[in-house]
Every structure is written in structure tokens, then in C-alpha cells.
């Protein structure tokens, strides 16, 4: 499928730049051009596709659907699934949270959405396909959705409403399963396309530098870290590896685009995939800036419980991965 990119990379490196084959640096450059091109193309496709889905399936519709339907427990799963198609900007987390609470959507269901939305996003999916292949990507997405579902159910059962900030409690008391009238954009596909296009370009522009730097660092590491280097320290039998990787990752606020190419090299050098994915989920799914924003609606205790439950779920899925893969 990507042979043609390899040919372009070969042509650029060997013919245009006239570098000789089999030299360490030449091969690294070739690999870098190939990898960057492939990943950027995949990112473009995934972001564009998600942009179309999101244009027709905006968050307001999702909210109305969740507050209207009685779904007998399935709502956690559905909220989590919606989280996948909705791009998440941490600056939207507060209005979103309030909107959901006001719509009478249970706290746990709201959490399901809040967990999956950053965890499984278009950028992460595009990068995963490019770096780890389709199979691992599917496992990642399915795990992410299930993790959001299960963590949401756990959080609901902890009865956390009392730990909301007072003004949110007031909103909660006045909650009604209403259909908020929202002004939906009635546009044809032709009218939507430029809007989607602008978004895609904007997202890509924002992440390209990180992707390139990430792949470059990954490439350098690839050349200098010996094969199987990490196997000694972080093999599957080391029970502490997954928890430590996850806990290290939570406070890190790096975007996925910079860190994923590096993680891929770590996996190639012997870190078990489950440990690496747990690390990834910690970086992408939970972050301190998000916690700071959530302080407007939640008490510190609630944020701590929220982060703890999600962290434990991530550690659990890391172990599960290491057993299954």
C-alpha cells in the first residue's frame, strides 16, 4: 500500500541527493522521509474522515440523544463511543460537563464521554495506524472505548455528586431531561466541505512540527539504542513496569503527535506493547491542565477520585495487553 512512498524516498535520497546506499545516515534519512510522509498522509485521511463525521454528528445532537433515551446501561458505552468521534479540546471540557449535567445525563455517563474523548482521538488513531499498524490500532481503540465505559460505570456507582462544586450542584438540582434547542447548521455537503477542510489544515499545521521532531528523535534512538535494550528492565514479568509507566505518564502533558513516534521505537527496542500503550493512555488521556480546568466544576477530592479510577483502569488494561499480545 505504501510502496510508492518508499520509491519516492529512494528517489529523493539516492538520485536527487545522490547519497550512497548502505550508509548509516543515508538509511536513516530514507527511513525518516518514508515514515514522515506515510504518517502525515494517514493523519490527513483520518482527521478528514473524523471531520466529516463530526460535522454531521455534533456534540449537541449527542447530548440530546443521551438525555432523551433510556438506554438501560448501554448509555455508558454509547457516550464512550461518541467520545471517539468528537474532537476534544480541553478548553471545552467545562461547558461540556455543565451541558451534560444540565441535560440530566448521569455523572458516570458524562465521565465515560470525558475519558474517551481525549483518549481515542483522530490524531492518535492516525499515528497509531502509521506506527503500529491496523491491528494494534483496533486494539487500542476498542480498549479505549471499553475503558471509558467501565470507568464511567465505576464512577457512577461511587455516588460522587456530593463532591461537585456548589454551583454545579445547583445546576444538577435544576437538571431536566430537556431538548435544548440548538441552532444546527443546515448546510449541504458542498457548504460543509470548506469548513471541514479549514479545520483539517489547522489541526495538521498544529501537529506537523511535533510529528517531525518525534520521528526524528525516534530515528536517532533507533540507530543508537541496541536491540532489546529495555528487555532487561521492563519485560513482561516485571510487575512494576506498567504502573510506573502509567504514573509517570499522567502528569506529562505532551501531545500524542510528538510522543508516539518515540514510543514506537521503545517498543521496537523491547518494551512490551502493553506497557507502552498504558504509558500512551496516561499521557493522552489524563493531564494536569485538564485537571486545573475541571477544578471549576469539581472539588479536588472528585478530581482525585476521577484520575485515580482512570489510572487504575489504564494500569489494568496495560497488564491485559501484555498477557494477550
Amino acid at each position: 500500500m505504501f510502496n510508492w512512498i518508499q520509491r519516492i524516498a529512494d528517489w529523493l535520497v539516492y538520485d536527487v541527493l545522490n547519497l550512497s546506499k548502505e550508509q548509516h545516515l543515508t538509511e536513516a534519512l530514507n527511513f525518516f522521509i518514508y515514515d514522515t510522509t506515510k504518517i502525515l498522509i494517514l493523519l490527513f485521511i483520518v482527521i478528514f474522515f473524523m471531520g466529516i463525521v463530526n460535522s454531521y454528528f455534533p456534540i449537541d445532537k449527542v447530548k440530546n440523544y443521551l438525555s432523551r433515551k433510556k438506554l438501560y446501561g448501554l448509555e455508558y458505552f454509547i457516550a464512550s463511543l461518541f467520545g471517539v468521534v468528537t474532537p476534544f479540546c480541553s478548553c471545552s471540557s467545562v461547558p461540556l460537563f455543565i451541558g451534560f449535567v444540565r441535560g440530566g445525563i448521569p455523572l458516570g455517563v458524562t465521565f465515560s464521554f470525558l475519558i474517551t474523548s481525549p483518549l481515542v482521538n483522530e490524531v492518535a488513531i492516525g499515528l497509531f495506524i502509521g506506527l503500529f499498524g491496523i491491528k494494534t490500532t483496533i486494539i487500542y481503540v476498542v480498549t479505549g472505548v471499553l475503558l471509558g465505559t467501565i470507568a464511567g460505570i465505576i464512577l457512577q456507582n461511587l455516588k460522587l455528586e456530593r463532591y461537585l462544586t456548589p454551583w454545579v450542584k445547583e445546576v444538577l438540582a435544576n437538571a431536566q431531561r430537556d431538548q435544548d434547542a440548538f441552532q444546527s447548521e443546515k448546510l449541504t455537503f458542498k457548504q460543509r466541505l470548506p469548513i471541514i477542510w479549514t479545520e483539517v489544515i489547522k489541526i495538521l499545521k498544529g501537529i506537523i512540527p511535533y510529528v517531525i521532531v518525534g520521528i526524528a528523535i525516534g530515528g536517532l534512538m533507533h540507530g543508537y539504542i541496541p536491540e532489546g535494550f529495555f528487555e532487561k528492565y521492563m519485560n513482561k514479568d516485571n510487575l512494576f513496569a506498567v504502573p510506573i509507566a502509567t504514573i509517570l505518564a499522567v502528569p506529562m502533558y505532551s501531545n500524542a503527535s510528538g510522543i508516539l513516534p518515540v514510543v514506537q521505537v521503545l517498543v521496537a527496542k523491547g518494551i512490551p506493547l502493553g506497557t507502552a500503550i498504558a504509558f500512551m493512555m496516561g499521557v493522552v488521556g489524563l493531564s494536569l491542565p485538564e485537571a486545573m480546568l475541571l477544578k471549576k466544576v469539581m472539588t479536588l477530592k472528585l478530581i482525585t477520585i476521577f484520575f485515580t479510577v482512570v489510572t487504575l483502569c489504564i494500569i489494568f488494561s496495560g497488564f491485559l495487553f501484555n498477557i494477550l499480545l
Binding site: 456534540i59 449537541d60 447530548k63 479540546c89 478548553c91 471545552s92 467545562v94 461547558p95 461540556l96 455543565i98 451541558g99 451534560f100 444540565r102 454551583w167 445546576v171 435544548d180 440548538f182 471549576k296
Partner: peptide, 13 residues
């Protein structure tokens, strides 16, 4: 102000 924002019923800013 988040309270003011919520009066407009927007979920995404």
C-alpha cells in the same frame, strides 16, 4: 465567566 457562557447553552467553545 463560565456561568455567563452556560446561559447561551453552548457545549463547545
Amino acid at each position: 465567566d463560565i456561568m455567563e457562557i452556560m446561559k447561551f447553552n453552548v457545549l463547545r467553545t
